[in-house]
C-alpha cells in the first residue's frame, strides 16, 4: 500500500515544529544551528512530497524534477551556510571563550 502524501506532510510539519522548539529553547549556538538544519530538512521533505503529488496528478514528470532540483539547491545552500556559520562560531569562540548566545550580549543596548 502506498503512503498518502498528507502523511509525509504531517511528518514534515512535526519535524519543523521540533526544529522551532530547538531554536527557541536552546541557548547553545551549535544546537540552535542543528535545529535550523532540521527545519531546512523538513522543508525539503515537503518540497519533494509536493512535487511528487503535483507530478502524479498532472501526469507529467517535469513538476517532480523541478522539486528535486529545488531541493538540490537547498542542500547546496545549506552546506554553504554550515561552513560560514561554523567558521563564525570558531571566530566568536576565539574572542569570547563561549558560544552561548545568552552571553553574546556585547551589542545589546
Amino acid at each position: 500500500m502506498t503512503v498518502p502524501v498528507s502523511w509525509y506532510l504531517a511528518l514534515a510539519a512535526a519535524l519543523f515544529g521540533i526544529g522551532i522548539l530547538g531554536v527557541l529553547s536552546r541557548r547553545n549556538a551549535i544546537t540552535m544551528f542543528l535545529s535550523i538544519e532540521l527545519m531546512l530538512n523538513s522543508v525539503n521533505l515537503t518540497i519533494v512530497a509536493f512535487a511528487r503529488s503535483f507530478g502524479d496528478r498532472a501526469g507529467d514528470m517535469t513538476a517532480v524534477l523541478d522539486g528535486n532540483v529545488l531541493v538540490l539547491m537547498v542542500i547546496a545552500v545549506a552546506a554553504a551556510e554550515a561552513a560560514v556559520g561554523l567558521a563564525l562560531f570558531i571566530a566568536v569562540y576565539r574572542g569570547r571563550r563561549s558560544i552561548d548566545v545568552n552571553r553574546l550580549n556585547l551589542m545589546r543596548w
Partner: peptide, 24 residues
C-alpha cells in the same frame, strides 16, 4: 510557539491534501 506552529501547518496540510493517494 513550536506546538502552535506545527499544529497550524498540520491542519493546513491535512485539510488540503488529505486523501490524495500517490500512484505506485
Amino acid at each position: 510557539v513550536a506546538a502552535g506552529f506545527a499544529l497550524l501547518l498540520l491542519t493546513l496540510f491535512w485539510g488540503r491534501y488529505h486523501g490524495l493517494d500517490l500512484s505506485p
